[in-house]
Design a protein around this nucleic acid. Structure first.
Length: 349
DNA sequence: AAAACGGGGGG
DNA sequence: CCCCCAGTTTT
């Protein structure tokens, strides 16, 4: 009966989100566009609805179909992804579009298994697309649903060990009817009622069925193993302006590793200390404050060195660094840490 | 099984 | 400051 109570709640309280088709369209038997469902799901991986909403609209305007996305240069896709993080998502998104457009005639596979075989689509995303776009009763498991299941069934085993048990519970509840709405209802519930802290149990449509709530332990679930502390790394970024036209030198980072494939300012490796060996001899000016930024597994403190050079020195620098000149780096699609570098140079000039 | 991989918002 | 977010891929 969980699914009935939940769907009833969803019909009354569903969030209006740009990648969702409204209840009216569903009544007419329309299915959502798989391309849009896929795009939204990839964008939403480890990324909040608030962050995704404006970016989803922009992306869709630029790349309205899977064919358009497949035909675009990957650099354009990465530039559009700038600031969203986890840039492998953008490279895989582009790769996936090319597979779908080139090998599947532009049509997404309709089964969980077929979707899972595509780049950038893992267990969660395959299940979500199958359920939402193709009405398949797939077991959708994300962070929200894990939390809801942990509370509903009072699972006290810490994550990630609890994952198989939580999945079994979720599978036992997944309905054959409206599986896409059911999955989205569970995620909405996790996002708005069954929140990580201070869950609003008084408003919860599943309150009567929640064992954790009955035992007053819901705020302590799900338990999690705690994670390692982040070390701090140091480095230096170089902001080189070409005197003639004011263009700024940027480099393309290698596909593998942190910020893979993204444009960046030339910089040292990030390590134990900021050992600045400038790429060219020039009258460098050091910014007053370093850029501070936190990545998934370390903090970064990066000094910023600036210089404006003659066109001859500019050619030398470009050759040494294998860079490209950009008239306006603010428009180039820089990841956040290098956008911060840009902010520092604007402030100190 | 564990680590790599971004960034922003909430408490 | 720590935690969390519609996770996936690589090691």
């Amino acid at each position: 009966m969980i699914d009935a109570a939940l769907l009833d709640w969803y019909d009354r309280h569903a969030r209006v989100l740009p990648w969702r088709t409204g209840p009216a369209a569903r009544k007419r038997g329309e299915r959502p566009d798989p391309y849009r469902v896929w795009l939204s799901e990839v964008m939403l991986q480890q990324t909040t609805v608030a962050t995704v909403t404006p970016r989803y609209a922009r992306f869709l305007e630029l790349f309205p179909t899977v064919e358009a996305l497949a035909a675009a240069p990957v650099e354009d896709v990465l530039a559009e992804w700038a600031g969203l993080g986890y840039y492998a998502r953008a490279r895989n998104l582009h790769k996936c579009a090319q597979v779908v457009a080139g090998e599947h005639g532009g049509v997404f596979p309709q089964t969980e298994e077929g979707l899972l075989a595509l780049p950038g689509i893992g267990a969660y995303t395959a299940a979500a697309i199958a359920a939402i776009a193709f009405d398949e009763p797939a077991v959708v498991m994300d962070g929200n649903i894990e939390r809801v299941m942990a509370r509903l069934f009072a699972v006290e085993t810490p994550l990630p060990d609890a994952k198989p048990v939580l999945r079994d519970h979720a599978a036992s509840l997944t309905p054959d009817k409206r599986p896409g709405d059911y999955a989205q209802a569970l995620m909405d519930l996790g996002a708005t009622i069954c929140t990580p802290r201070n869950p609003a149990c008084a408003l919860c449509p599943l309150r009567e069925k929640c064992i954790a709530q009955k035992n007053a332990i819901q705020a302590d679930l799900p338990r999690k193993k705690k994670k390692a502390a982040k070390p701090t790394r140091f480095g230096t970024a170089f902001h080189i302006t070409r005197k003639g036209d004011g263009a700024v030198l940027l480099v393309r980072r290698p596909d593998k590793g942190l910020l893979g494939g993204m444009l960046a300012f030339p910089a040292t490796e990030w390590g134990e200390r900021a050992d600045a060996e400038p790429p060219i001899k020039a009258a460098w000016l050091k910014a007053d404050e370093p850029v501070r930024h936190t990545f998934t597994h370390f903090h970064l403190e990066m000094d910023v060195w600036m210089v404006t050079v003659s066109d001859a020195a500019a050619r030398k620098a470009q050759k040494a660094l294998q860079g490209e000149w950009h008239p306006d780096p603010a428009m180039a699609g820089l990841p956040t840490v290098f956008r911060k570098v840009l902010d520092v140079t604007n402030r100190d000039k």
